[in-house]
Design a protein around this nucleic acid. Structure first.
Length: 215
DNA sequence: TTGTGTTTTATTGCCTCC
DNA sequence: GGAGGCAATAAAACACAA
């Protein structure tokens, strides 16, 4: 049995010292709480993280601790709990960010492939003047132009190539590889909205069934 | 055994609320 | 103004590799 499992209480330690120095002993001796004390404190914390004074006093009496020790324990426990929570939330955000990045790459590839397809069809149209192919090309053109890909302006000062024509087919240059931070932020908040994590339940996988997570 | 990093208990100082 | 909470920090206790 390790020392951690069964450390002597303040009373155990101090009972062995001379009674005249008992108070000094209790004041100066810093001992870790024993398992029973920790267990009771933890149990209480689960039901009430900020117990009333009376509750703390009762608990202190039962556990052979000073009320102040119990109060301090709850204070430290709240601090530990909070930092653990922050750590978890940070990790969740990190995962969301990575997933969003993968999604972006996937969409980019899909977009590039559609553009290639479109260009091929246009070429065929120009060569053959086939009306059926032309219609197909026009249809594709509208599909390839989702709202989010249309730049506000087509100007070199925004790092974008000049618009080739009003249909905006060639507006995406190599610069589009640069991840737009505003889009990421939007995406993150979207994920957060779709996958709200509550303090106690956010790690529960069932709480998050957004299609975004399926990537 | 010892050096070092981590965890736990305790203190201090500031802030808010009644 | 006193009580209680929180953040920052000190210091003791503990874990563990070398």
């Amino acid at each position: 049995m390790s020392m951690r499992e069964m450390p002597p209480t303040n009373s155990d330690i101090c009972a062995q010292s001379m009674s005249s120095s008992l108070k000094k002993c209790k004041d100066n001796m810093r001992r870790r709480f024993n398992d029973e004390q920790i267990k009771s404190l933890e149990n209480m914390f689960e039901t009430e993280s900020r117990p009333e004074l009376r509750t703390k006093q009762q608990l202190a009496k039962r556990l052979d601790l000073q009320p102040r020790q119990v109060a301090i324990w709850f204070q430290n426990k709240r601090a530990r709990s909070k930092s653990k929570q922050l750590e978890l939330e940070y990790r969740m955000l990190q995962i969301s960010y990575e997933k969003l990045g993968s999604k972006y790459e996937l969409l980019k590839k899909e977009h590039e492939s559609l553009l290639t397809q479109l260009q091929r069809l246009r070429k065929l149209t120009e060569e053959g003047g086939n009306e059926e192919i032309q219609n197909e090309g026009n249809k594709l053109e509208t599909e390839v132009k989702p709202e989010q890909f249309v730049p506000e302006t087509c100007s070199p000062e925004f790092g974008l190539p000049l618009c080739e024509d009003s249909r905006g087919i060639d507006y995406l240059g190599p610069e589009s590889d640069t991840l737009n931070m505003a889009q990421i932020a939007d995406g993150l908040s979207e994920i957060e909205n779709e996958c709200r994590f509550e303090s106690r339940t956010f790690l529960d996988d069932s709480a998050c069934r957004s299609p975004l997570w399926e990537f």
